[in-house]
């Protein structure tokens, strides 16, 4: 970057704007997940539709962030921390946009089972949704405070999301074996659980970018999680 104070000030102002947009995108992604789960629990079709339609807003905002980032690269030719920050923001906006997509995916699947009573009370799926919200929240906080320790903790939180996904799978498998009429709805619920599990993975990606941005070293989220128990599960 040009070594002038005015350039620095302008860069910092642009950075602030793009960071605010990223936070906004983060809270929209969080809302998409929470809204989809709420719609599922309450069998609220209007809310599910709202989540699905809301995805366009996320897409537009992601596009805006990408344009801002490219403009900053073109105007300021950032290096070092500045460059890592812009590049991480570009990656993070993609991850958040995907989380939003997954939320809207949950809402779409949920709409397919609104016409029938639930085969079981929903406990673990809402719990998963809650964990993901907490993870996104903490990741955004880690981003704003450049807090690598918190980012690593968030990676570890994904273990619980994966556990819940496996538990849900086993439970629904059981219900399907008990009664083939459960198969359709159970399959949909498994899909929902899988969407949430994928959202958790995107949050760990966010954390990898936060650590890279802050320290310049690449980490793997898996290094901060408990050892894998075996891939056959």
């Amino acid at each position: 970057m040009a070594n002038s104070l005015t350039g620095r000030k302008e860069f910092d102002e642009s950075l602030l704007r793009i960071e605010q947009n990223l936070l906004k995108l983060g809270s929209l992604a969080e809302e998409a997940i929470a809204g989809a789960i709420w719609a599922l629990q309450k069998q609220d079709d209007a809310l599910a539709l709202k989540v699905i339609e809301g995805d366009d807003v996320l897409d537009d905002l992601t596009q805006e962030i990408n344009e801002q980032a490219l403009m900053m690269i073109a105007r300021f030719q950032p290096v070092a921390l500045d460059l890592r920050t812009i590049s991480s923001i570009l990656h993070m906006s993609t991850d958040l946009e995907r989380i939003g997509d997954l939320g809207s995916g949950v809402a779409k699947v949920a709409r397919k089972i609104f016409h029938e009573p639930l085969i079981k009370p929903l406990i673990d799926i809402p719990r998963m949704g809650e964990r993901i919200r907490e993870m996104i929240d903490a990741a955004l906080k880690a981003f704003m405070n450049r807090d690598c320790a918190l980012a690593r903790e968030v990676c570890a939180m994904d273990d619980e999301v994966d556990d819940l996904d496996r538990q849900i799978f086993r439970e629904l498998l059981m219900l399907m074996m008990q009664n083939p009429r459960n198969i359709e709805q159970a399959t949909h619920l498994i899909l929902i659980s899988r969407n949430l599990e994928r959202a958790g993975d995107h949050v760990t990606n966010l954390c990898e970018h936060i650590v890279y941005m802050t320290t310049g070293t690449f980490i793997k989220a898996g290094d901060f999680r408990r050892p894998h128990e075996g891939k056959n599960e």
């Binding site: 970057m1 070594n3 002038s4 620095r8 290096v79 070092a80 310049g216």
Partner: peptide, 20 residues
């Protein structure tokens, strides 16, 4: 490496225009 992840804070500050 110097322009993506410099090790010294002073290098970082200089090349990102924080002083100089």
């Amino acid at each position: 490496q110097m322009f993506t992840s410099p090790r010294d804070k002073r290098t970082e500050d200089y090349i990102t225009g924080r002083f100089g």
